[in-house]
Amino acid sequence: MSVVEIKNVTKSFGSLQAVVDVTLSVEKKETVIICGPSGAGKSTLLRCINGLERPRQGEVWVDNVEITGDKANLREARKEIGIVFQSFNLFPHMNVLNNLILGPTKVRRVTKADAISKARELLERMGLIEKIDAYPDELSGGQAQRVAIARALAMDPKLMLFDEATSALDPEMIKDVLDVMADLSNRGMTMIVVTHEMGFAKAAANRVVFMVDGRIVEEASPEVFFQSPQDPRSQHFVNQIIGI
């Protein structure tokens, strides 16, 4: 059963066509990597999946709810979609615990006690329980991003989106975050990940989707994509990130 169905989605900003006629489906428990050169429309496509961008044409279905239709549907569906941004976007005026329980208590209407115990469990898992009272500006980038992942997971989503989650991090912190993401993937979370991290793709991805100029030009398993890409643009891209 597919969790995400993207059907012929087109999104433009003025005269710029960011996403052009993209069709993609993601199965339950699958981890799909979206990669491609900058400006390929990867982030825009990802943002169409939780309605942060509204496509001009096409449909997006998440968990059998059409989010490109009714606005009420979109609000409902967003409860099931966690997103992790490149720049963390933690709420700077709240400590870690309050960042984690805001969504569950206000949107899911979970009791505060339940939300707190869930938050503690997630922070344990992230190795960040000692930061529970810290404010976001007291965290390193890697810690902040893991808190952001925990904040998304606190909503018990069925789908997790990662928008270049490690691009803003110092190299030594990337691994901590990728480990958390790989662990999440192994636990059976359905994930769509915009990233260039090949190590992560090989370790956790079921599929790699390669985009150029708003279109999907290649879809393959990570092994095939990184070793013998078919499309010349994919070959060029893979060569570049391998550093040949």
Binding site: L52, I83, F85, N89, F91, K106, V107, R151, A152, M155
Partner: peptide, 16 residues
Amino acid sequence: TSQREAAIALGLSYFH
């Protein structure tokens, strides 16, 4: 805007 988007993504209503 990123703060607004983070709040929207959690499903918070305009009021919240």
